[in-house]
Amino acid sequence: MPSRQAGPIGRVRRAKRAGRARRAGRVDRLAPFVLVAPAVLVVVLLRLWPLVLGINFSFTGDGELNGTAVGLDNYLALLDDPLFRTSLRNVGLLVLLLPIAVAIPGLLATFIHLKVPGHRVYRGVYFFPAVLSPVIVGAIFTLLLSFDGPLNAALGGLGLPPVDWLGDPDVAIFAVVGVHVWATFGMALVVFLAGFSTLDPSLLDAAKVDGASFVQTLRHVIVPGLTRTIQFVFVTTMIGMLTSMFGLLYVMTGGGPEGSTYLPEYYIWMQQGRFDRPALASAASTALFVAMLVVGLAQVAVLRRTGKED
Protein backbone atom coordinates (compact mmCIF):
# COMPACT_ATOMS: atom_id res chain seq x y z
CA MET A 1 0.00 0.00 0.00
CA PRO A 2 1.52 3.36 -0.98
CA SER A 3 2.03 5.52 2.08
CA ARG A 4 -0.40 8.44 2.21
CA GLN A 5 1.24 11.24 4.09
CA ALA A 6 -0.58 14.37 5.14
CA GLY A 7 1.17 17.59 6.04
CA PRO A 8 2.74 20.58 4.46
CA ILE A 9 4.97 19.26 1.69
CA GLY A 10 5.99 21.27 -1.40
CA ARG A 11 4.07 20.54 -4.57
CA VAL A 12 7.10 19.36 -6.53
CA ARG A 13 8.18 17.07 -3.79
CA ARG A 14 4.69 15.73 -3.54
CA ALA A 15 4.54 15.03 -7.24
CA LYS A 16 7.90 13.30 -7.17
CA ARG A 17 6.86 11.23 -4.25
CA ALA A 18 3.60 10.27 -5.92
CA GLY A 19 5.50 9.11 -8.98
CA ARG A 20 7.82 7.04 -6.85
CA ALA A 21 4.88 5.63 -4.94
CA ARG A 22 3.12 4.65 -8.17
CA ARG A 23 6.21 2.87 -9.40
CA ALA A 24 6.69 1.30 -5.99
CA GLY A 25 3.05 0.29 -6.06
CA ARG A 26 3.54 -1.59 -9.29
CA VAL A 27 6.71 -3.21 -8.00
CA ASP A 28 4.94 -4.09 -4.77
CA ARG A 29 1.94 -5.56 -6.50
CA LEU A 30 4.20 -8.01 -8.29
CA ALA A 31 6.46 -8.61 -5.30
CA PRO A 32 4.47 -11.39 -3.59
CA PHE A 33 4.37 -13.39 -6.81
CA VAL A 34 8.07 -12.92 -7.43
CA LEU A 35 8.80 -14.01 -3.87
CA VAL A 36 6.75 -17.22 -4.03
CA ALA A 37 7.54 -18.10 -7.64
CA PRO A 38 10.78 -20.09 -7.13
CA ALA A 39 9.29 -22.10 -4.27
CA VAL A 40 6.08 -22.79 -6.18
CA LEU A 41 8.08 -23.85 -9.20
CA VAL A 42 10.14 -26.35 -7.21
CA VAL A 43 7.19 -27.79 -5.29
CA VAL A 44 4.96 -28.08 -8.34
CA LEU A 45 7.61 -29.56 -10.64
CA LEU A 46 9.25 -31.91 -8.16
CA ARG A 47 6.44 -32.83 -5.75
CA LEU A 48 2.98 -32.33 -7.19
CA TRP A 49 3.71 -33.13 -10.84
CA PRO A 50 5.44 -36.43 -9.94
CA LEU A 51 2.44 -37.26 -7.76
CA VAL A 52 0.11 -36.90 -10.75
CA LEU A 53 2.56 -38.77 -12.99
CA GLY A 54 2.83 -41.58 -10.47
CA ILE A 55 -0.91 -42.08 -10.08
CA ASN A 56 -1.24 -42.09 -13.85
CA PHE A 57 1.73 -44.44 -14.11
CA SER A 58 0.18 -46.94 -11.73
CA PHE A 59 -2.46 -47.74 -14.35
CA THR A 60 0.12 -48.68 -17.00
CA GLY A 61 2.18 -51.82 -17.39
CA ASP A 62 5.78 -52.86 -16.71
CA GLY A 63 8.33 -54.36 -19.06
CA GLU A 64 6.79 -55.15 -22.45
CA LEU A 65 3.57 -53.43 -21.49
CA ASN A 66 5.45 -50.22 -20.66
CA GLY A 67 3.23 -47.25 -21.42
CA THR A 68 0.08 -49.20 -22.27
CA ALA A 69 -2.96 -48.89 -20.07
CA VAL A 70 -3.63 -51.98 -17.99
CA GLY A 71 -6.43 -50.70 -15.78
CA LEU A 72 -6.29 -52.03 -12.27
CA ASP A 73 -3.90 -54.90 -13.02
CA ASN A 74 -1.10 -53.47 -10.89
CA TYR A 75 -3.39 -53.11 -7.90
CA LEU A 76 -4.61 -56.67 -8.33
CA ALA A 77 -1.01 -57.83 -8.62
CA LEU A 78 -0.25 -56.01 -5.37
CA LEU A 79 -2.99 -57.80 -3.51
CA ASP A 80 -1.69 -61.09 -4.89
CA ASP A 81 1.88 -60.41 -3.83
CA PRO A 82 2.67 -62.03 -0.46
CA LEU A 83 5.39 -59.42 0.15
CA PHE A 84 2.92 -56.58 -0.22
CA ARG A 85 0.43 -58.38 1.97
CA THR A 86 3.11 -58.79 4.61
CA SER A 87 3.86 -55.08 4.39
CA LEU A 88 0.18 -54.27 4.95
CA ARG A 89 0.01 -56.67 7.85
CA ASN A 90 3.03 -54.93 9.34
CA VAL A 91 1.30 -51.57 8.94
CA GLY A 92 -1.60 -53.04 10.90
CA LEU A 93 0.87 -54.08 13.57
CA LEU A 94 2.28 -50.54 13.68
CA VAL A 95 -1.21 -49.14 14.17
CA LEU A 96 -1.70 -51.54 17.08
CA LEU A 97 1.62 -50.49 18.60
CA LEU A 98 0.90 -46.80 18.05
CA PRO A 99 -0.74 -46.15 21.44
CA ILE A 100 2.34 -47.56 23.18
CA ALA A 101 4.67 -45.44 21.05
CA VAL A 102 2.65 -42.37 22.06
CA ALA A 103 2.14 -43.31 25.71
CA ILE A 104 5.85 -43.84 26.46
CA PRO A 105 7.00 -40.31 25.58
CA GLY A 106 3.78 -38.92 27.07
CA LEU A 107 4.42 -40.54 30.44
CA LEU A 108 8.10 -39.60 30.38
CA ALA A 109 7.23 -36.00 29.58
CA THR A 110 4.74 -36.01 32.44
CA PHE A 111 7.41 -37.12 34.88
CA ILE A 112 9.89 -34.61 33.55
CA HIS A 113 7.28 -31.89 33.87
CA LEU A 114 6.61 -32.97 37.46
CA LYS A 115 10.34 -32.48 38.05
CA VAL A 116 11.42 -36.03 38.76
CA PRO A 117 14.90 -36.00 40.31
CA GLY A 118 17.33 -35.49 37.41
CA HIS A 119 14.67 -34.15 35.04
CA ARG A 120 17.02 -31.65 33.44
CA VAL A 121 19.41 -34.36 32.33
CA TYR A 122 16.70 -36.67 31.02
CA ARG A 123 15.35 -34.18 28.52
CA GLY A 124 18.72 -33.81 26.81
CA VAL A 125 19.59 -37.50 26.97
CA TYR A 126 16.26 -38.81 25.70
CA PHE A 127 16.16 -36.44 22.78
CA PHE A 128 19.57 -37.26 21.41
CA PRO A 129 18.85 -40.51 19.47
CA ALA A 130 16.17 -38.56 17.58
CA VAL A 131 18.83 -36.59 15.72
CA LEU A 132 20.76 -39.67 14.59
CA SER A 133 20.19 -41.02 11.11
CA PRO A 134 18.22 -44.28 10.92
CA VAL A 135 21.29 -45.62 9.12
CA ILE A 136 23.52 -44.91 12.10
CA VAL A 137 20.96 -46.25 14.54
CA GLY A 138 20.44 -49.34 12.42
CA ALA A 139 24.17 -49.96 12.10
CA ILE A 140 24.68 -49.64 15.85
CA PHE A 141 21.78 -51.95 16.61
CA THR A 142 22.92 -54.64 14.21
CA LEU A 143 25.89 -54.90 16.57
CA LEU A 144 23.77 -54.76 19.73
CA LEU A 145 21.19 -57.26 18.50
CA SER A 146 23.57 -59.73 16.89
CA PHE A 147 23.26 -63.25 18.21
CA ASP A 148 26.42 -62.92 20.32
CA GLY A 149 25.81 -59.25 21.08
CA PRO A 150 25.25 -57.32 24.31
CA LEU A 151 21.48 -57.77 24.52
CA ASN A 152 21.69 -61.56 24.40
CA ALA A 153 24.60 -61.41 26.82
CA ALA A 154 22.40 -59.44 29.21
CA LEU A 155 19.61 -62.00 28.79
CA GLY A 156 22.15 -64.73 29.49
CA GLY A 157 23.14 -62.92 32.65
CA LEU A 158 19.52 -63.13 33.77
CA GLY A 159 19.50 -66.84 32.93
CA LEU A 160 17.32 -66.41 29.83
CA PRO A 161 17.97 -68.08 26.48
CA PRO A 162 19.32 -65.89 23.63
CA VAL A 163 16.92 -64.58 20.99
CA ASP A 164 17.75 -64.34 17.30
CA TRP A 165 16.46 -60.75 17.17
CA LEU A 166 16.99 -60.05 13.49
CA GLY A 167 16.99 -63.64 12.19
CA ASP A 168 13.68 -64.94 13.51
CA PRO A 169 10.74 -64.02 11.23
CA ASP A 170 8.39 -63.80 14.21
CA VAL A 171 10.67 -61.49 16.17
CA ALA A 172 12.48 -59.30 13.63
CA ILE A 173 9.65 -56.83 12.95
CA PHE A 174 9.24 -56.21 16.68
CA ALA A 175 12.97 -55.70 17.02
CA VAL A 176 12.99 -53.14 14.20
CA VAL A 177 9.93 -51.30 15.53
CA GLY A 178 11.48 -51.32 18.99
CA VAL A 179 14.62 -49.71 17.61
CA HIS A 180 12.50 -47.17 15.75
CA VAL A 181 10.71 -46.27 18.98
CA TRP A 182 14.05 -46.04 20.81
CA ALA A 183 15.31 -43.69 18.13
CA THR A 184 12.27 -41.42 17.90
CA PHE A 185 10.54 -41.21 21.26
CA GLY A 186 12.64 -38.14 22.06
CA MET A 187 10.92 -36.19 19.27
CA ALA A 188 7.48 -36.85 20.71
CA LEU A 189 8.82 -36.15 24.19
CA VAL A 190 9.93 -32.67 23.21
CA VAL A 191 6.56 -32.00 21.59
CA PHE A 192 4.80 -33.17 24.76
CA LEU A 193 6.99 -30.92 26.90
CA ALA A 194 6.07 -27.96 24.70
CA GLY A 195 2.43 -28.91 25.24
CA PHE A 196 2.96 -29.01 28.99
CA SER A 197 4.33 -25.50 28.96
CA THR A 198 0.91 -24.33 27.73
CA LEU A 199 -0.87 -26.22 30.53
CA ASP A 200 -2.18 -23.98 33.30
CA PRO A 201 0.09 -24.70 36.31
CA SER A 202 -2.65 -23.69 38.76
CA LEU A 203 -4.63 -26.76 37.67
CA LEU A 204 -1.78 -29.05 38.68
CA ASP A 205 -1.40 -27.17 41.95
CA ALA A 206 -5.11 -27.49 42.62
CA ALA A 207 -4.91 -31.22 42.00
CA LYS A 208 -2.02 -31.42 44.43
CA VAL A 209 -3.88 -29.44 47.10
CA ASP A 210 -6.92 -31.66 46.66
CA GLY A 211 -4.70 -34.67 47.26
CA ALA A 212 -5.29 -36.22 43.83
CA SER A 213 -3.28 -39.36 43.14
CA PHE A 214 -0.88 -39.45 40.20
CA VAL A 215 -3.29 -41.48 38.10
CA GLN A 216 -6.15 -39.13 38.92
CA THR A 217 -4.06 -36.11 38.02
CA LEU A 218 -3.09 -37.77 34.75
CA ARG A 219 -6.66 -38.65 33.87
CA HIS A 220 -8.50 -35.54 34.92
CA VAL A 221 -5.97 -32.77 34.47
CA ILE A 222 -3.15 -33.69 32.13
CA VAL A 223 -4.85 -35.72 29.40
CA PRO A 224 -7.81 -33.32 28.93
CA GLY A 225 -5.43 -30.35 28.98
CA LEU A 226 -3.19 -31.80 26.31
CA THR A 227 -5.76 -33.18 23.85
CA ARG A 228 -4.34 -31.22 20.96
CA THR A 229 -0.76 -32.22 21.65
CA ILE A 230 -1.72 -35.87 22.05
CA GLN A 231 -3.54 -35.85 18.73
CA PHE A 232 -0.60 -34.16 17.04
CA VAL A 233 1.80 -36.76 18.41
CA PHE A 234 -0.49 -39.59 17.28
CA VAL A 235 -0.49 -38.27 13.72
CA THR A 236 3.22 -37.48 13.51
CA THR A 237 4.18 -40.81 15.08
CA MET A 238 2.01 -42.67 12.60
CA ILE A 239 3.51 -40.73 9.70
CA GLY A 240 6.99 -41.42 11.07
CA MET A 241 6.27 -45.13 11.24
CA LEU A 242 4.94 -45.17 7.68
CA THR A 243 7.68 -43.06 6.11
CA SER A 244 10.89 -43.02 8.08
CA MET A 245 11.76 -46.62 8.76
CA PHE A 246 13.39 -47.25 5.39
CA GLY A 247 16.92 -46.62 6.69
CA LEU A 248 16.45 -49.10 9.54
CA LEU A 249 15.02 -51.79 7.28
CA TYR A 250 17.72 -51.22 4.67
CA VAL A 251 20.53 -51.57 7.19
CA MET A 252 19.12 -54.03 9.72
CA THR A 253 17.07 -56.64 7.86
CA GLY A 254 16.85 -55.86 4.15
CA GLY A 255 13.18 -56.78 4.45
CA GLY A 256 14.05 -60.24 5.73
CA PRO A 257 14.08 -62.77 7.27
CA GLU A 258 11.69 -64.38 4.80
CA GLY A 259 10.29 -60.96 3.86
CA SER A 260 8.80 -60.60 7.34
CA THR A 261 9.92 -57.01 7.91
CA TYR A 262 8.60 -55.46 4.71
CA LEU A 263 6.81 -52.13 4.99
CA PRO A 264 5.16 -50.34 2.04
CA GLU A 265 8.06 -47.90 1.66
CA TYR A 266 10.54 -50.76 1.48
CA TYR A 267 8.33 -52.63 -0.96
CA ILE A 268 8.20 -49.57 -3.23
CA TRP A 269 11.98 -49.26 -3.12
CA MET A 270 12.53 -52.93 -3.96
CA GLN A 271 10.06 -52.97 -6.85
CA GLN A 272 11.56 -49.81 -8.31
CA GLY A 273 15.24 -50.29 -7.59
CA ARG A 274 15.74 -54.06 -7.56
CA PHE A 275 12.97 -55.80 -9.47
CA ASP A 276 12.57 -53.08 -12.12
CA ARG A 277 8.80 -52.92 -11.78
CA PRO A 278 8.24 -49.14 -11.64
CA ALA A 279 4.55 -49.30 -12.54
CA LEU A 280 3.86 -51.82 -9.79
CA ALA A 281 5.90 -49.64 -7.42
CA SER A 282 3.73 -46.67 -8.46
CA ALA A 283 0.61 -48.59 -7.55
CA ALA A 284 2.06 -49.30 -4.11
CA SER A 285 3.01 -45.61 -3.85
CA THR A 286 -0.54 -44.59 -4.65
CA ALA A 287 -1.84 -46.97 -2.00
CA LEU A 288 0.57 -45.46 0.53
CA PHE A 289 -0.53 -41.98 -0.53
CA VAL A 290 -4.17 -42.84 0.13
CA ALA A 291 -3.21 -44.11 3.57
CA MET A 292 -1.33 -40.87 4.27
CA LEU A 293 -4.27 -38.86 3.01
CA VAL A 294 -6.55 -40.60 5.48
CA VAL A 295 -4.12 -39.82 8.31
CA GLY A 296 -3.79 -36.22 7.11
CA LEU A 297 -7.52 -35.63 6.73
CA ALA A 298 -8.09 -37.15 10.15
CA GLN A 299 -5.69 -34.57 11.54
CA VAL A 300 -7.38 -31.70 9.73
CA ALA A 301 -10.76 -32.86 11.02
CA VAL A 302 -9.40 -33.15 14.54
CA LEU A 303 -7.75 -29.74 14.39
CA ARG A 304 -10.94 -28.16 13.14
CA ARG A 305 -12.89 -29.73 15.99
CA THR A 306 -10.45 -28.66 18.69
CA GLY A 307 -10.26 -25.25 17.01
CA LYS A 308 -13.98 -24.87 17.65
CA GLU A 309 -13.53 -25.86 21.26
CA ASP A 310 -10.93 -23.16 21.85
Binding site: L48, P50, L53, L242, I268, Q272, S282, S285, L288, M292
Partner: peptide, 11 residues
Protein backbone atom coordinates in the same frame (compact mmCIF):
# COMPACT_ATOMS: atom_id res chain seq x y z
CA UNK B 1 1.50 -34.91 3.39
CA UNK B 2 3.11 -36.24 0.22
CA UNK B 3 5.97 -38.36 1.53
CA UNK B 4 8.96 -39.03 -0.66
CA UNK B 5 8.08 -42.72 -0.98
CA UNK B 6 4.91 -41.77 -2.80
CA UNK B 7 6.64 -39.78 -5.52
CA UNK B 8 10.02 -41.50 -5.71
CA UNK B 9 9.34 -43.56 -8.82
CA UNK B 10 8.04 -40.73 -11.04
CA UNK B 11 10.54 -38.28 -9.52
Amino acid sequence: FVPFQVIMVPL
